[in-house]
Design a protein around this nucleic acid. Structure first.
Lengths: 134, 134
DNA sequence: TTACTGTACTATATAAAATAGTACACATAG
DNA sequence: CTATGTGTACTATTTTATATAGTACAGTAA
C-alpha cells in the first residue's frame, strides 16, 4: 500500500502525506477506512515511528484524516473544501512551476492540456473530494 | 528584475533559477541577454555571492544560460528540448501533485483546465522554448 | 595595469529531517 | 482488573541542505 523512497529529496513524511491524499482521490482509500497504526506502518516500511506520526499529524491538520486517541487514524468523512484565497494561490503557484518545467521539457500547450486531462481522468470522474463520500 | 523571499521554504538559489526560466518563457529575458554578474546581483538583492553562483551554475547545467569565464552569464541561444523520458516523468509528477492539491482546494476539473490554460496564455503563444529565439 | 568577470576553495552557522529511546494517556478485548 | 495496542510527548543525536563569510586565483577587456 505505502511505498517510500528514502533517497528522494522529498521528505519521507511528505511522501506519505501525498500518497494518502492521492489514495483518497483515486478511491483506494475510502472515508472511514482505518490507516495502519504509527508503529505498524513504521515496521512495514522500515521507517522511524516518529516520521509516521509527523505524516499523520500533518494529514490531520489538513483534515484529510481523523485521529482518535487510543484507537487509530481514519480517513476523514467530513472533508470540506473551502475556497481559500491563500490555498488557491499555492495551487496556482504549483501549476505555474509545472508549466515552466513542461515548456523546458519541450511540451506544447496542447500536450500539456492533454497531460493534465489524463491525470484528471486517472482520479475518476469525481468533481470534488466531497463526492468521494458517495 | 529579481526578487527573493529569504523566509520561503524554497531555497533562494532555486527561486532565482525559476525566475530566470520564467523570464525566458515570458520574453522578459531574451536569448543573448546578459544577466547581472554574481557580485552585482548579490549586492542588488542582499544575498551572498555564493548563493547566486549556485543558481547560475544550476541554470548552466540545465542549458538555460551560458557562462563565459571573465565575461558573464548570458541567456542561452542554443536551448534544445529533447524528449527526455526521465524529464517527462518529472513533469508529470509535478502536475500530478498539483492536481491533487487542486482537488483538495475544491477545484473542479473544468476549473483546473481553465487555470492551466490561463497560465499557458500568460507565457504568450509560443509553442516551445525554441520559439523564443525568433 | 586596472577593474571587472567567473571559479574554487575552506570554514561556520542554521534549519529541516530522520532516527533512537523513553514515558505516559487512552481504548478495548480478555 | 490486566494486557495489549493505540496516539502522544518528550529529549537527544545525527545527517543533510542551505546560506553566509572570507580568501584566493584565473580569464577578459578597456
Amino acid at each position: 500500500m505505502f511505498t517510500v523512497d528514502p533517497t528522494s529529496s522529498v521528505p519521507i513524511y511528505q511522501q506519505l502525506v501525498e500518497q494518502v491524499k492521492e489514495g483518497v482521490l483515486k478511491g483506494t482509500l475510502t472515508p472511514g477506512d482505518r490507516l495502519p497504526s504509527v508503529r505498524e506502518l513504521a515496521t512495514m516500511i522500515t521507517i522511524n515511528p516518529n516520521t509516521i506520526q509527523k505524516a499523520y499529524q500533518e494529514l490531520e491538520r489538513q483534515n484529510v484524516i481523523e485521529t482518535i486517541r487510543g484507537r487509530g487514524n481514519y480517513v476523514a468523512r467530513t472533508y470540506q473544501a473551502r475556497p481559500d484565497e491563500e490555498r488557491l494561490a499555492l495551487v496556482e503557484e504549483m501549476f505555474r512551476r509545472s508549466v515552466v518545467e513542461a515548456r523546458y521539457a519541450g511540451l506544447s500547450s496542447e500536450e500539456i492540456i492533454t497531460l493534465v486531462k489524463s491525470i484528471l481522468a486517472s482520479y475518476g470522474g469525481r468533481e470534488s473530494v466531497k463526492d468521494v463520500k458517495d
